[in-house]
């Protein structure tokens, strides 16, 4: 199942992972629109989140604040971010650090060069949750 808000997109994968693709300059309204569509479909256990940010140009402050509100509501178990650019990793780190301080148990996050690495890491996290 795939949702779209202009350039931004999200797909609910078969294993329940929410795979987001953030592109260009992300507008706060697009974040709200995307999560609004998601909320109508989401139910059940907590989710792993995959963020593909290879096409991201800018994550403005207001967008980060909107994302923080949405993530605190979504309560992800783990977030894998595909991004190699330093200017992307810095604001995303700031965001996910705050998410980690406000959700218990503390959700993990990690940065990866490729989507396959990110997916593999998320699978490991899921296995740890199922069989701690």
């Amino acid at each position: 199942m795939r949702f779209q808000a202009r350039e931004q997109a999200c797909e609910i994968r078969e294993d329940g992972t929410l795979a987001f693709t953030w592109s260009g300059i992300v507008d706060p309204a697009d974040v709200s629109a995307l999560f609004h569509q998601l909320r109508e479909r989401l139910a059940g256990p907590k989710r792993n989140v995959l963020w593909d940010m290879t096409g991201l140009q800018l994550l403005p402050g207001e967008t980060r604040r909107r994302l923080l509100d949405e993530l605190l509501e979504l309560r992800p178990t783990a977030t894998a971010v595909v991004a190699s650019e330093f200017f992307v990793r810095v604001p995303v780190t700031m965001l996910l650090e705050v998410v980690a301080t406000e959700i218990a148990p503390k959700p993990e996050y990690g940065f990866f060069e490729t989507e396959s690495e990110a997916t593999a890491w998320l699978s490991d996290r899921a296995r740890e949750v199922v069989a701690p």
Binding site: G61, T93, T101
Partner: peptide, 16 residues
Amino acid sequence: ITALSCASFDRFDSDA
């Protein structure tokens, strides 16, 4: 990093 991140989101009251 955590403390500065919290500050950037106005989470000044957070222990972090």
